[in-house]
Amino acid sequence: MKRFLNAGMCLPMTKKPAEINSRIENPESWVDQHGDFLYRFTLSRVKDPSIAEDLVQETFLAALKARKNFQGRSTARTWLIAILKHKIVDQIRKRVREQTSDKVESMFNAAANNPEDASFDDEGDWRVGPSKWAINPMKLYEQKEFMDVLYHCIGELPERQAEAFMMREIDGFSTEEICKVLNVSATNSWVMLYRARMWLRRCLENNWLEVEK
């Protein structure tokens, strides 16, 4: 929960404080201003409308609890979307855990906790080199299947790795801030981020078809 309290705090200042205050003084107006956008964003990742509604509600409630920590370093929408992404990944993780036996899950965690062993031989060379991804980085929002698989893969990560990755890449936290929240050393945080990224790229290559071998 602590991560939600800080979500979005580290993003660059884009608006004047007065503009920010006018937007956060009436939290109920968030629902009218951003509710549909958040709902559509959720539906693009979670297919069940009732689950999507619940996630949007949880997002507004988490934002309300953390409102005093919103320092206006990002727009309200960016802040809400960051909270929502955490909620979506939590929901996907819950679903993955429900569908996976304990034995498979422990094998899964072992692989995700040490993805470099499967990727490199004893000499440190790639066992199978990364494939060329047939994707335009400038049009990622059009790559629906890629984004679906990405969220699914984040949901499969061990929880702390997923948290580290999301804090860094979604919330824009520095590694110093990640170290404080997760109570790990700087070196540990870099290793966690490395393993999360290694796992995600492998997971994407295994589950997303648009690669050139």
């Binding site: 956008f37 539906l43 992404k85």
Partner: peptide
């Protein structure tokens, strides 16, 4: 991965397909 994780846009199709709250 970094760019995709930070993405806030939605595919146009999702706008058309998904209803409002």
């Amino acid at each position: 991965l970094r760019k995709a994780a930070g993405l806030e846009d939605i595919h146009e199709e999702d706008f058309g397909r998904s209803p409002s709250l």
